[in-house]
């Protein structure tokens, strides 16, 4: 499962999408919007077709690089409030070591190469400032 969506991420569905009888480990990473310096939400902007292409390639690379069985990546777009889930990566492998490693690598790659930008939304005044 590879997706970029406005709707809330169904973590159970992401988890189920990687289940396989030959996999003894599943790692689920969930990135959330944390409360920080008056931030009340993050707005995610995505170049969707390129992001989908990039996430698909990334999941395939993870399988090849770490020998894992399945990987799903789902990212939010639009406004995600503090406490909300912004990204979920589920990874299934035969053993836990490579499964943890693949999940961590994939998250780093998502932040590095997938065309997604975030803007911090502050306080009640709805003022917006760039995150970089």
């Amino acid at each position: 499962m590879i997706d970029v969506r406005r709707a809330r991420i169904d973590l159970e569905a992401v988890l189920d999408s990687v289940r396989r009888d030959d996999a003894g480990a599943i790692v689920l990473f969930v990135g959330t919007v944390r409360s920080d310096e008056g931030i009340r939400a993050l707005d995610y902007e995505v170049y969707r077709p390129m992001a989908i292409k990039s996430l698909t390639a990334l999941a395939e690379q993870a399988k090849e690089k770490f020998g894992i069985a399945e990987m799903s990546i789902v990212h939010r777009l639009g406004r995600v409030p503090v406490g909300g889930d912004s990204v979920a990566i589920a990874c299934a492998g035969i053993h836990r070591a490579e499964t943890f490693a693949a999940c961590e690598w994939a998250m780093d790659e998502v932040k590095r190469i997938v065309p997604i930008w975030k803007t911090e939304v502050e306080g009640r005044a709805k003022s917006v400032r760039g995150s970089r």
């Binding site: 919007v33 170049y47 990204v87 998250m107 932040k111 997938v114 065309p115 997604i116 930008w117």
Partner: peptide
């Protein structure tokens, strides 16, 4: 043609 700023995706 897309002009792409450095990405800042994923969780904070």
């Amino acid at each position: 043609v897309a002009l792409l700023p450095p990405v800042s995706g994923g969780a904070r």
